[in-house]
Design a protein around this nucleic acid. Structure first.
Length: 573
RNA sequence: GACUCAGUAGCUCAGCUGGUAGAGCAACGCCCUUUUAAGGCGUGGGUCCAGGGUUCGAAUCCCUGCUGAGUCACCA
């Protein structure tokens, strides 16, 4: 590794690592390091009046250092939080040899290094619970400097805030930015809360195929891949709905799955190409039952995560206390536009869209038009949790027709903060109706609606054997997590949101450069001025390269003997 | 896919109508035994995202590209 490519601080840290080696200290020891406490446990258990906690071992990452001659303070961060440690030269090094403190701690350790310490707990004059170090072990040396984030009275200074760096190097984000970890802990708690809710009721967590030969259950552009042995195309699933319903046909009364789904569509604040959905199907229930069930579940999640139901989300307070408001989509449209669209035909709906200045196109049928009106004029108004019910049949090919109106379906979506987070039906179990609805989707697809669905004949066959009346519900885990953690971007609730890959140029070896006749001392300079590849170098003009090399030599006072212009021309020949 | 904004030291950011790059933190050296955004004195550190153009001269102006963010389009 060429040192010219490393920053000054990285070079210094590599030298410190060598120095540790010379002192016989392995900066990456193999042995288990047994700790007795976590930082939070110490803060809870320590009682200055009792003067307890005399033998404590903790491990963590050095986050700050305040060196004051023969004594120092540092902050260690472990999995649970931060705790201050106090290092005193003569306590750490009782004998003549003060190397461990003077050299190892003060000179060779850095912010970011992981150490283990043993000592006793005390309280400083400032009232800070602190571990007084008697023994110190290096557990891992950090070779790259961490961003330094400081904080006083809740105000954060020099936050590590570049979103690109935060998402690409999430590990750094997690180390230095307080609160990031908590979002992800809440995400897991949310899923555990749901699991518990389902398991208590006897529903079975299952796994269904991610690689599917027909990407069914939703309408979206899939990612496509290829299976070599079978020599067939396969798709990453866009939904798991049809597989879960096959299991209901097979005789399970309640099945659920936390599913990673994949859609090959645009990315924005609420869309990532891979995302997580929880879907649950329960036999002998209808969508009204499912509304009660969903309500109870969402309320429980809020309580499990926050101990209360009213949460601050952005500048709004959202209350997840049941019951949630329920309104049919047609009533919602009436409420927000004053227009009653029930019973209207396609032509009349088009006229309404014109009146409301909603953009539409020829491929849209009745259902889609109603959906557009709702999306444009109503959706954003539902801040508090609201069930929107009874969607038109055209936009719900997997939902059962409404018991009172065959134009509508028994379907609901849960709207919170103006966004859909959940979608549920009384599932269509009439095999002939289902087949016809799929065929209708095909016609829409031929009409140009690229959201229409593929037909899954095996699924229809399963329905032909008979599926009990069933209600199903799907809920977007990422979006629910956003609500429950007050995050305004999906990227903040995914550890590793999708990014364009970094370009990594592998530099050519020294030999490839010296083979051209270039003197070894100039190779690093050539790299530094931007040529890591011999091929790129050969493209450049000798005169420009000559000037750049001499200029760099002079500017950086390298003191190298400049090559002649002829030398440079010979290298590139 | 369209538009807008951004990219300067390890991090956060200044840098005016073009004139050889600045601060704080971090780093390095020295001082300091209960500090906490520790403090004091001193020092080093930059292909100013990349490539072209205009100019005597470009971090700065123009064009192209790369990366990211935002808005829209798309999105059961």
């Amino acid at each position: 590794m060429s040192t010219l490519e490393l920053s000054e601080q990285e070079i210094i840290r590599r030298k410190s690592l060598e120095e540790l080696n010379k002192l016989g200290i392995n900066a990456y020891p193999a042995a288990e390091f047994k700790t007795t406490h976590l930082s939070t446990e110490i803060k809870q258990e320590f009682d200055p009046a009792k003067d307890n906690l005399k033998e404590v071992v903790i491990a963590g990452r050095i986050m700050s250092r305040r060196i004051m001659g023969k004594a120092s303070f540092a902050e260690l961060k472990d999995a649970e939080g931060r705790i201050q440690i106090y290092l005193n030269r003569d306590d750490m090094c009782p004998g003549e040899d003060k190397t461990l403190y003077n050299t190892v701690f003060k000179k060779l350790l850095d912010i970011g290094d992981i150490i283990g310490v043993k000592g006793f707990i005390f309280q400083t004059q400032m009232g800070e619970t602190t571990l007084h170090v008697q023994e110190m072990t290096i557990l891992s040396k950090s070779l790259k400097p961490l961003p330094i984030v400081k904080e006083k009275d809740g105000k954060v200074y020099d936050a590590f805030s570049d979103p690109e760096l935060r998402y690409r190097q999430r590990y750094v984000d997690l180390i230095v930015n307080e609160g990031v970890k908590d979002v992800f802990i809440k995400r897991t708690k949310l899923m555990n809360s749901m699991r518990q809710f389902f398991n208590e009721r006897g529903y079975l967590e299952v796994e269904t195929p991610i690689l599917q030969s027909i990407p069914g259950g939703a309408a979206a552009r899939p990612f496509i891949t290829h299976h070599n042995a079978l020599d067939i195309p396969l798709y990453l699933r866009i939904a798991n709905e049809l597989y879960l319903k096959r299991l209901i046909v097979g005789g399970f009364d309640g099945v659920y799955e936390f599913a990673k789904d994949f859609r090959n569509e645009g990315m924005d604040r609420t869309h990532n190409p891979e995302f997580t959905v929880m879907e649950i199907y329960v036999a002998y229930k209808d969508y009204k039952w499912m509304m009660d069930f969903t309500e109870e579940m969402v309320e429980k999640i809020a309580l499990d995560l926050h101990g209360k139901t009213d949460l601050q989300v952005g500048d709004k307070t959202i209350d997840f206390k049941r019951p949630f408001k329920r309104i049919s989509i047609l009533d919602a449209i009436k409420e927000h536009t004053g227009i009653d669209v029930s019973g209207m035909n396609e032509e009349q709906l088009r006229a309404v869209c014109g009146e409301l200045e909603i953009e539409i196109d020829d491929s849209m049928g009745k259902g889609k038009l109603i959906d557009e009106i709702f999306g444009e004029k109503c959706e954003g108004n539902y801040i508090q949790p609201t069930f929107i019910t009874d969607y038109p049949v055209e936009m719900s090919p997997l939902a059962k027709r409404h018991r009172d109106n065959p134009e509508l379906t028994e379907r609901f979506e849960l709207m919170v903060n103006g966004k859909e987070i959940c979608n549920a039906y009384s599932e269509l179990n009439h095999p002939i109706d289902q087949k016809e609805r799929f065929e209708e989707q095909m016609r829409l697809s031929e009409k140009g609606d690229d959201e229409a669905m593929f037909i899954d004949h095996d699924f229809v066959r399963a329905l032909e054997y008979g599926m009990p009346p069933t209600s199903g519900m799907g809920i977007g885990i990422d979006r629910l997590t956003m609500l429950m953690t007050n995050s305004d971007s999906i990227q903040d609730v995914l550890f590793f949101p999708q990014m364009r890959p970094e370009k990594r140029i592998v530099p050519d070896s020294d030999e490839k450069f010296t083979e051209l006749g270039i003197a070894p001392e100039w190779v690093e300079v050539i790299r530094k001025i931007g040529f890591s590849k011999v091929d790129a170098l050969k493209e450049t003009k000798p005169s420009k390269l000559f000037q750049d090399l001499c200029g760099y030599n002079k500017k950086n006072k390298l003191g190298l003997k400049n090559p002649s212009q002829d030398d440079v021309a010979a290298w590139l020949a």
